[in-house]
């Protein structure tokens, strides 16, 4: 098959569409196919240029971002304004999900490294969904809770390990 035909077919495949992309994000694991098309109307697609700030530490946080294309660097600043890089996230990764359920200031900063397409899902949209389509909202929230509790468990285990190490060092 020559490349011309190849391209035409590829652009219409499901993986390339927004819904198909969202289906692969862990938070939306629980959603059915029909819910995904509704989720498409809920998501905000934003385009960022390279080195553009997505949010700064202590900004009011109100939702999560999913990376569709490009890369985002997550970092914190110490008291001397020095940046400490925590992670570089790529396509399919997401960040800021902890503020989706409860409002809180951002604990980290996020900045793009190249031209990036981000999908934003915000608390207010989720609240509006909860009154109109409680079933969809509960499935999204369930996926979110599952992921956050998994993360909490690993964090707990890690803390326990560190505590053990600390007590061993003290003895």
């Amino acid at each position: 098959m020559n490349t011309l035909w190849n391209n035409i077919f590829r652009s219409s495949t499901e993986e390339e569409s927004l819904a198909g992309f969202l289906a692969k994000v862990p938070v939306f694991n629980e959603l059915e196919k029909r819910d995904l098309s509704y989720l498409e109307t809920l998501i905000h697609v934003r385009n960022y240029t390279a080195q553009e700030t997505v949010f700064e530490q202590s900004d009011p946080g109100s939702g999560m971002y999913i990376i569709r294309t490009g890369h985002v660097v997550i970092f914190t600043r110490d008291s001397h304004e020095l940046e400490e890089e925590l992670a570089i996230l790529g396509p399919g990764d997401f960040f800021g999900e902890t503020t989706l359920a409860s409002p809180a200031p951002r604990t980290v900063s996020a900045r793009t490294t190249e031209g990036t397409e981000l999908l934003g899902l915000f608390r207010s949209d989720l609240l509006a969904t909860a009154t109109k389509h409680p079933d969809i909202a509960s499935r999204i929230l369930f996926g979110l809770t599952k992921m956050i509790s998994e993360r909490l468990q690993t964090a707990t285990l890690e803390i326990r390990g560190l505590q053990r190490k600390l007590t061993e060092q003290e003895h």
């Binding site: 905000h44 934003r46 900004d59 009011p60 915000f122």
Partner: peptide, 26 residues
């Protein structure tokens, strides 16, 4: 109504989009 509001809020620059979106909802 919601689509119109989203369209207006979407005009906000990236840096202020989140805040504009939140405020418009509230």
């Amino acid at each position: 109504g919601t689509t119109i509001m989203r369209g207006i809020v979407a005009l906000a620059p990236n840096r202020y989009f989140e805040m504009a979106h939140d405020l418009s909802f509230l």
